[in-house]
């Protein structure tokens, strides 16, 4: 069982097992600490504590992130970081869950659709993540529970050149992980 699922489990029954898994997982991760200056040749240098189910980690395994079951993806209009009414509803639902699960730490990942160039979309994704972070803090979620990242258009959930797929990719995804 992946440690990330533990974060979503509120059942005390599996709590001990989860804790053990987290300890084991955490030890393995902490072995490679950040090394400023020399990044070495190849390999992954983890800096800080990124979530286990980040879209990048999943991509390394050849998987996409999914669009959230408990914590739903929040969507945006084209070239915008504005949170509209539909997104606000999803955000409020996520905020409620986060309030109920007060220990959970989340990484807010900003994503974009495939239109638009690489760097601009990285910047736009960062704005989207920031917008969601500010909204959640405004809803009373402690700021230290939230980190942000942007993947621009690099890690889409679908690749069709259609309005429907583009809309799915314009999102902030809630990645959870070791706590």
């Amino acid at each position: 069982m992946r440690p990330s699922l533990c974060a979503l489990s509120a059942t005390p029954r599996y709590a001990l097992l989860c804790v053990l898994l987290l300890i084991v997982g955490g030890c393995a991760r902490r072995a490679s600490g950040p090394r400023p200056g020399d990044a070495g040749t190849g390999g992954v240098v983890e800096e800080g504590l990124g979530p286990d189910d980040s879209s990048l980690d999943l991509a390394r395994q050849g998987r996409t992130s999914g669009e959230g079951t408990v914590l739903r993806d929040v969507h945006f209009p084209f070239d915008s970081d504005e949170i509209d009414d539909a997104s606000r509803a999803a955000l409020d639902g996520n905020a409620a869950w986060l309030t109920d699960n007060a220990k959970t730490r989340i990484e807010l990942e900003g994503h974009c659709d495939s239109r638009g160039t690489v760097e601009y979309n990285l910047a736009l994704g960062a704005r989207r993540a920031r917008a969601v972070q500010e909204y959640l803090v405004g809803q009373g979620i402690a700021a230290e529970r939230l980190t942000t990242n942007s993947y621009g258009k690099e890690l889409p959930v679908c690749r069709e050149e259609t309005e429907e797929c583009w809309a799915r990719n314009r999102r902030v995804h809630f990645a959870t992980g070791k706590q």
């Binding site: 200056g37 990044a39 070495g40 040749t41 190849g42 800096e47 690489v118 990285l122 910047a123």
Partner: peptide, 13 residues
């Protein structure tokens, strides 16, 4: 491969 910008700062390009 060596780091060019330091840890703790985010650079897009």
């Amino acid at each position: 491969v060596t780091a060019f910008t330091p840890a703790g700062a985010v650079y897009l390009g």
